[in-house]
Amino acid sequence: MQTPAPARIRLLLLTDTSIAFSGGSERFLRNLVTLLPRDRYDITVVQLDAGGFPESEKHHLADGDAARIVHLPVEAIYGRGGLRALRTLRSMVAGGGFDIVQSHHEKSDLINALLPRRPGCVHISNRRDMGYKKSAKLKWLFRHLNPRFDCVVAPSQQILGELARSEALEAGRMLWIPNGVDTQRFHPRPPPARAAIRQSLSLQADALVFGCVARLTPEKRHVDLVDAFARMHATFPQARLVLLGDGPLQGEIEARVVSLGVAGAVRMTGMRPDVEAILPALDVGMLVSSTEGMSNAILEMMASGLPMIATDVGGNRSLVASGATGLLVPARAPGRLAEAMLALAADPALRHRMGEAARQRVEREFSLAAMVRAFDQAYRRLADVA
């Protein structure tokens, strides 16, 4: 007797940003949409990004019809766009077309919490950071809205702990699913490939290259990174710094680099679509944020075989085993950061051991397949689908 095919889950994903963007939460959502089994999911993505509908979204979703994308631009949740999006989504959900509604970021969470509840539809909030952008009033509001969610999922235990503390989130609603990285896309490269990438970036073969993948925004603390690099560059003039990312602080960071006299040693590439090719050409990966949830950038650098220097905040301490796969330093401490950079600069053997251990840890604990499998299992359990 032939076994019946599993029932298809109708999944509605709400996000404040376009999935074509290059940030960690957008990469997470693209991975989820494209890798969930297509024969078991019907996926609709509703984007509340007010910046317009990028044509590049079709490119980012891989070939085929992985998801239907709907654009409902919202400037302010309490404005006309927010009310219009709420009305549209209430109609979509009330019609019984979805088994699961999952939201990402504050606007989407607020709308999700206000949608009608009906039997057979599960509401999930996916929290990706430590809530550093939430005001005290917004945290107060979420204390009252969190019971509207059947489940709140987060990629790190630190995020869930903060939600319990600041938003009175109940343990029974918490679900921890770590981020995953594509270890086939992000992997070490042989010396000839490294040399070719370095040449394309105007980096000498013998340069000691530190790199950071992050948006140029205040919480990523590029100012601390540049200050620390300038200090260590005085001791290691062959050191170079590659900053992959763009953002509102680009002009400020460029000016800082010039004022510190290291403009010739710093490469600011903007956000590159080929980041997986650039990372293996580096010697040390860095992320020095003042706050983090669970960084996809750290996972991608570790998967590329890089030892990490990261700040001891949020989920970073769950990823970087200090002394084994990299070094953890306090946030907003350029002096301590420079000391860590000097320590790795002076010890090639240590860099090599940490880089190998970092790759092995990602393969063992943070694979993309494991993350998608965990979401698939959680969805089927919450939706009570065999």
Score class of each variant (00 low, 15 high):
Asp206Gly: 03
Pro237Asp: 00
Gly315Ser: 14
Ala154Ile: 08
Ile159Phe: 03
Asp49Phe: 11
Pro191Ser: 09
Leu35Ser: 15
Leu29Ser: 03
Asp224Gln: 09
Ile100Tyr: 06
Arg10Val: 05
Ala230Phe: 00
Ala343Tyr: 00
Asp39Tyr: 04
Thr235Tyr: 00
Lys139Phe: 04
Asn179Arg: 12
Glu55His: 09
Ser259Glu: 15
Leu160Ser: 06
Leu14Cys: 01
Asn31Phe: 01
Glu55Pro: 03
Glu339His: 02
Val223Arg: 13
Ser322Ile: 08
Gln204Ala: 14
Gln360Ser: 06
Pro192Tyr: 08
Asp347Pro: 01
Tyr78Ile: 02
Glu276Thr: 03
Arg361Val: 07
Gly161Phe: 01
Val288Ile: 15
Arg351Val: 08
Ala277Asn: 12
Ile309Ala: 10
Leu48Met: 04
Phe149Met: 11
Arg128Asp: 00
Thr44Ser: 14
Gln360Trp: 07
Ala136Ile: 13
Gly314Glu: 11
Gly172Asp: 11
Gly323Pro: 14
Leu203Lys: 12
His144Ser: 06
Leu342Met: 15
Pro273Thr: 03
Asn126Gly: 03
Leu145Ser: 05
Asn179Tyr: 09
Ala205Lys: 10
Gly161Leu: 01
Arg353Trp: 06
Met1Gly: 15
Gln360Asp: 04
Glu254Lys: 12
Arg118Trp: 05
Asn179Ala: 13
Pro178Leu: 08
Pro190Ile: 07
Val288Lys: 09
Ala303Arg: 11
Leu287Met: 13
His123Ile: 00
Ala207Glu: 09
Ala154Ser: 15
Glu254Cys: 02
Val320Tyr: 06
Ser22Tyr: 05
Val93His: 04
Leu350Gly: 10
Val122Leu: 02
Arg194Thr: 06
Arg40Val: 12
Ile19Phe: 08
Cys212Ile: 15
Arg381Leu: 13
Gly51Gln: 12
Gly245Ile: 05
Glu356Asp: 05
Gln204Cys: 06
Gly326Asp: 05
Pro273Ser: 01
Phe210Arg: 07
Ala214Phe: 02
Ser103Lys: 10
Pro54Ile: 02
Trp176Val: 14
Ser322Trp: 12
Gly95Trp: 00
Pro273His: 02
Phe229Ile: 03
Ala239Tyr: 01
Phe366Ala: 11
Tyr78Phe: 14
Gly251Gln: 14
Asp16Trp: 11
Thr44Leu: 04
Tyr41Glu: 10
Gln199Gly: 01
Ala85Phe: 12
Leu72Gln: 08
His104Gln: 14
Leu36Cys: 13
Asp129Asn: 14
Ala171Ser: 13
Pro54Gly: 05
Phe210Gly: 00
Val209Asp: 03
Leu216Trp: 11
Leu279Gly: 05
Glu26Ala: 02
Leu13Ala: 00
Gly64Asp: 15
Leu114Gly: 03
Pro73Thr: 04
Gln102Arg: 15
Ile124His: 09
Arg90Gln: 02
Gly247Trp: 11
Met294Phe: 12
Arg189Val: 06
Gly79Trp: 01
Ala345Val: 04
Ala321Lys: 11
Arg215Gln: 05
Phe149Ser: 01
Arg10Gly: 02
Asn316Phe: 10
Gln102Val: 07
Ile43Asn: 14
Thr311Arg: 07
Cys151Val: 15
Thr34Met: 14
Ile124Ala: 03
Ala207Val: 06
Asn31Tyr: 07
Glu57Asn: 05
Ala277Thr: 12
Ile309Glu: 10
Ala164Phe: 00
Phe375Thr: 09
Val209His: 09
Gly120Ala: 06
Pro37Val: 08
His105Arg: 08
Met286Ser: 06
Leu260His: 09
His105Trp: 12
Met371Phe: 08
Arg27Tyr: 03
Lys134Asn: 10
Asp224Thr: 11
